[in-house]
């Protein structure tokens, strides 16, 4: 059983998605919204350029919470997130979290994903089985 205690910080996950990551994620997920893969389209709708898929960043949050619980994919029981800032490719994403509570074999972890000061995912709460 993984040992997590209330107040513990979980290991930080740092990932810098390369320029073509949104293309690979689009293929993997089936979400080909052009705001993620076509810079001209993204600019035409008022974005600085292509943006990361929110669900890709949620995937990183899931990865971080799963790792904190020992790495077994079925350890993650629930994950809720709010998408706020837009994520950009070629910029480091830092996923960090703190154990909010531990109840028997279940722990609740508060998680944030950010690019610098820009919190792309906030108020994320993961429930994991220890």
């Amino acid at each position: 059983m993984t040992d997590l205690n209330t107040g513990d910080a979980i290991p930080e996950l740092r990932v810098t998605p390369d320029k073509y990551l949104p293309h690979r994620y689009a293929g993997a997920s089936g979400d080909f919204n052009p705001i993620h893969i076509d810079p001209e389209f993204a600019k035409a709708v008022g974005l600085p350029s292509t943006i990361l898929h929110g669900l890709y960043m949620m995937g990183l949050v899931a990865r971080s919470a799963t790792d904190a619980a020992g790495g077994d994919p079925k350890a993650l029981k629930r994950l809720s997130v709010q998408f706020r800032g837009m994520g950009a490719p070629e910029t480091e994403i830092v996923v960090s979290g703190t154990v909010k509570s531990v109840d028997g074999e279940k722990a609740t972890i508060d998680v944030v994903a950010a690019q610098g000061e820009n919190q792309t995912i906030r108020n994320a709460e993961a429930e994991v089985q220890l």
Binding site: V45, G54, L55, M58, P73, K74, L76, K77, R78, L79, S80, V81, Q82, F83
Partner: peptide
Amino acid sequence: FAAMVHGAQEFEWGEP
């Protein structure tokens, strides 16, 4: 759709 953003998401998992 032109003014839509994905605001929040929650999943609860059961059987893998």
